[in-house]
Design a protein around this nucleic acid. Structure first.
Length: 530
RNA sequence: GGCCCCUUCGUCUAGUGGUUAGGACACCGGCCUUUCACGCCGGUAACACGGGUUCGAGUCCCGUAGGGGUCACCA
């Protein structure tokens, strides 16, 4: 049997990370068995601009490297893959169900239905439709129509016995048929609803495994009822727990971002992303710029493999220690049996930790263009980047090491590119390292002379030069290096000092020191004058 | 409220009757060090509760509590 799985998003304009995890599990299951993963668009209800709302979803999957064998843009033997274009099939199915007496025309108005439902709720009883407006014969139908009523098609659910099925994750499920409502499968306007469309398409596409969120578990009996009524073979069901909010067990929702921002880890992730977004002139729209959505990670320079690896482990594990999975190894080891039964909270810190590890393994050659993209977008450098700039960027990236966790972090090290005159000094660092130490100005002044004449601007040569200088002056390297850092970068922290100087080069180093000394002198005379 | 599901360190998890309850992220301490990181070493920290069954229970059974999902002419 060829394994065929599917993911069926509605075109909503965004890709939720919980959805990605579900899609990933489906993808893994199909691909590891040499089967197919299908993308189907559940747009039976959509009235909005679908083209536009679908694109971010497709882009998101492409970015993550989750490819589909059949579906939008790639086609396939069961076209179309849009439910909005498959209406006839559903209508035919509804007719079969009607003919078999497994569904009926229901002439109740919305108000009448609501009234019954509310009465049941008030009586604290389970709602069971009275079927007062049920029409099973044309004669009954005519009578209702004479009253000016219109109908929807409802499933005529059994009211005795149990629906039993095996779920690969939940286990054996048994639900009383009587607790199942007569769900509508076709609207008054003739269009069809999710349950019907879903079952018809799954059968039509030859889906063998239905792997979806646990919120669909309660939908399963009625879908089984439909499938059996239509004479379909049942797929294998697997309902995976939802992804929960950081620090709680509630379902993760993109709409609750304001609330999540109260969580310090979530906030930190969001802010680091927002800083990058701001620098590159991206609109920070909560509809798309949100760590709950995949877009966020693409925009801030995450590594898609890191995101996928993290998501894989959110609800699945191989053993007690393996955490790093390449696509190959996840395809080799994934199994539904090892999916965890309880909801897993989204942990921003751990995602970032995965990202850090993955970024470290990215070779310089690949890291450079990724970082360059951000510098270009932020207009720190020109587009396209010039050749000698590439060389400098490489030096910066190499020296920065794992201080660049996501590609967008390169923007933290933009002071190399700035004009010396526009360099900004961190006030606290300036005060502490330049103003406060009595002899900082003097030492930096002396060091400038040495640096101006240093034979070569490589990190190791500069280290020798500066160490010699310290010996001559009878000071420790710590006595001078902080002031030097502030002078040439304006910041209190950064990567290796000798690397920094080497990247900057003689001209900039000397020039920046001159400017810093000037600033210091200005401030001192200024303060004595007052 | 009805129906259904879940419950091991703060978080993700390992664990299928006998373990000093293991790992990872985070946190704390130390080392390294020119700062910030990295790295290395070490540490704190969990079986929701109550009954059974058993020589023995995180593991099996029952109950309680807590958390959550779902109840549309949405998907």
């Amino acid at each position: 049997m060829t394994v065929r799985t599917r993911f069926a998003p509605s075109p909503t304009g965004y890709l939720h990370i919980g959805g990605v995890r579900t899609a990933l599990f489906n993808w893994l299951l199909a691909k590891q068995a040499g089967g197919q993963f299908i993308l189907r668009i559940d747009d039976t209800d959509a009235q909005r601009n679908q083209e536009e709302a679908l694109q971010p979803i497709l882009d998101g999957f492409r970015w993550l490297g989750i490819d589909w064998d059949e579906g939008p843009e790639v086609g396939g033997p069961h076209e179309p893959y849009f439910q909005s274009a498959r209406l006839e099939k559903y209508q035919d199915a509804a007719k079969v169900l009607l003919d078999k007496g497994l569904a009926y025309r229901d002439y109740a108005t919305t108000a009448e239905m609501t009234a019954e439902r509310e009465a049941a709720e008030k009586a604290k009883q389970e709602f069971v439709y009275s079927r007062t407006w049920m029409a099973e014969t044309d004669q009954q139908a005519k009578a209702f129509e004479a009253e000016g009523r219109s109908f929807v098609v409802r499933l005529k659910m059994p009211r005795e016995g149990k629906c039993e099925f095996e779920d690969k994750i939940v286990g054996d499920v048994s639900i009383q048929w009587g607790t199942e409502a007569d769900h509508a499968i076709q609207r008054a306007d003739g269009t069809c609803l999710y349950h019907l469309a879903n079952v018809v398409d799954d059968a039509d596409f030859g889906i063998t495994h239905v792997v979806r969120g646990i919120e669909h578990l309660s939908n399963t009996p009625r879908q089984i009822f439909i499938a059996q009524g239509l004479g379909y073979e049942l797929p294998i069901y697997a309902h995976i727990p939802y992804v929960a909010e950081p620090g709680s067990k509630k379902k993760l929702s993109k709409r609750k971002i304001a609330e999540y921002l109260n969580n310090k880890d979530f906030k930190r992730l969001y802010q680091s992303g927002a800083e990058i977004a701001e620098r590159i002139g991206l609109e920070i729209d909560p509809a798309t710029f949100n760590p709950v959505l995949v877009d966020f990670y693409e925009k801030t320079g995450f590594n898609p493999d890191a995101v996928v690896n993290y998501l894989l482990l959110l609800g699945w594990s191989l053993d007690d220690k393996t955490e790093e999975f390449s696509r190959e190894s996840m395809l080799e080891h994934f199994s539904l049996e090892r999916v965890v039964k309880s909801a897993a909270s989204f942990d921003p810190q751990k995602l970032v930790a995965f990202q850090g590890r993955y970024m470290n393994d990215v070779p310089l050659k690949k890291k450079t263009p990724r970082c360059a993209r951000f510098l270009e977008k932020a207009s720190v450098i020109q587009t396209p980047i010039e050749c000698d700039q590439v060389a400098m960027l490489k030096q910066i990236i190499e020296a920065a090491g794992d201080r660049i966790a996501m590609a967008g972090d390169i923007l933290n090290f933009d002071d190399f590119w700035k004009e010396d005159e526009t360099l900004e000094y961190n006030d606290k660092a300036w005060q502490k390292r330049m103003v406060k130490p009595e002899n900082a100005g003097f030492l930096i002044g002396e060091l400038k002379k040495v640096l101006a004449e240093a034979p070569e601007y490589t990190a190791s040569d500069l280290e020798t030069v500066i160490k010699d200088f310290c010996e001559t002056q009878g000071i420790k390297i710590g006595d001078i290096i902080h002031a030097l850092r502030v002078s040439v970068t304006g910041k209190a922290a950064g990567f290796g000092m000798f690397d920094t100087l080497a990247i900057l080069g003689r001209e900039k180093v000397v020039n920046r020191i001159t400017l810093a000394l000037q600033k210091l002198a200005d401030e001192k005379t200024g303060s004595t004058a007052v």
